[in-house]
């Protein structure tokens, strides 16, 4: 009996010891965070320290984040949607889930970006979309580096491709829209089917394919350039390749959630995130792309827009909810279930 009571005593002490000290915080902020979790962590720490606001985030890829906002419409748990590709933010604004406004720093943001977003979201960064290629593995297999999206559908790359699932990932969605914009709807879907046969793994998040390619699990990962550069910096043998038939790009976005409970804190975050000093956190934590403030220095490792063939990406069309949902549905029903 004594032993039992001792055990209970230890357990109670342990429980009490784990009780958190309540922190007196001025205000809270809940961030829906879509990019590399390291960037989310960095923002949470820096912003929290700079303002004293207790900041929490949940990391969800762009597609999943959109789904979450849709689910919580009217009573959102989040106050601000930080980063993630612009297509999903466009849809959110069209659906009435986010609120667009021009922040104080609007005039100082890069004009191409502010024009392209057409009043739907606040641009945060922009980066190229393409392939992350592990040349070592390809060389071992005596295969050439793919030059076009059509090459990606060639059966010689079977089992060597990784791409994100467009249902959850903005990166995957941009792949779909890029191919459809280059080749047209039906031929585009035929190409997607061909690519599907070569896919070894579908990932949930857009950052994973470049990691898989870097580790040598696959040879080619569909990815935004920032992820590829980041992996390269970490030491993985991976290089960014821009297919010659045209590539898409993303404008990373920042949006205030409609009906946010902590609106004041959210507005402070938005202003904070657009300052050049704080935009530098992005490239330091995995988002190696062009940040939206015109005075933020561009990292030399970022692939330049001038060196590649960009398609005229129709953000408006592919940000329309009906178009987006329809495309994803078509892919899920016609391409994904095919045996590979």
């Amino acid at each position: 009996m004594k032993r039992t009571l001792n055990m209970i005593g230890i357990l109670v002490l342990g429980l009490v010891a784990m009780w958190p000290l309540s922190v007196g915080a001025q205000g809270r902020l809940n961030i829906l965070c879509s990019p590399d979790p390291a960037w989310c962590e960095a923002v949470k720490q820096s912003f929290g320290k700079a303002t004293g606001i207790q900041t929490e985030f949940v990391r969800l890829s762009s597609g999943a984040a959109l789904a979450r906002l849709r689910a919580e419409k009217g009573a959102p748990t989040f106050d601000v949607w930080f980063a993630g590709s612009g297509d999903s933010h466009w849809v959110a604004q069209a659906d009435g889930l986010t609120e667009f406004f021009r922040p104080k720093a609007w005039g100082e943001l890069r004009p191409q970006l502010t024009k392209a977003v057409d009043g739907h979201y606040i641009p945060l960064y922009t980066g190229l979309h393409g392939l992350g290629v592990n040349e070592k593995l390809l060389k071992e297999k005596n295969l050439p580096v793919p030059e076009t999206w059509k090459d990606l559908g060639d059966p010689k790359y079977k089992g060597l491709v990784a791409m994100p699932n467009p249902n959850t990932s903005g990166t995957g969605y941009v792949l779909m829209t890029t191919i459809v914009q280059i080749y047209g709807d039906d031929p585009g879907f035929e190409l997607l089917k061909a690519i599907h046969k070569n896919v070894a793994q579908y990932t949930r998040s857009g950052g994973d394919p470049s990691l898989l390619a870097g580790r040598g699990e696959v040879a080619i990962g569909v990815s935004f350039a920032n992820d590829v550069v980041e992996r390269g910096r970490k030491g993985f043998p991976i290089r960014f390749v821009a297919p010659k038939d045209g590539i898409g790009y993303e404008i990373g976005a920042l949006s205030l959630v409609q009906g946010a409970a902590n609106r004041e804190s959210a507005l402070r975050l938005i202003d904070w995130a657009l300052e050049p000093e704080n935009q530098k956190l992005g490239p330091q934590n995995g988002e190696v792309s062009i940040q939206s403030h015109s005075r933020t220095p561009i990292d030399p490792d970022v692939p330049r827009f001038e060196d590649v063939k960009l398609i005229a990406y129709d953000f408006g069309k592919y940000g329309t909810p009906a178009v987006r949902d329809g495309l994803i549905k078509r892919w899920t029903e016609q391409v994904f279930p095919l045996p590979r």
Binding site: A67, N165, N167, T168, V199, Y202, I328
Partner: peptide
Amino acid sequence: ILLGGGTPFLATEVFLAIEGRF
């Protein structure tokens, strides 16, 4: 979800239907 490589399973499809498409 870790090792499946995107292959559909019932348990993961339940999750993806909510998280990806709500």
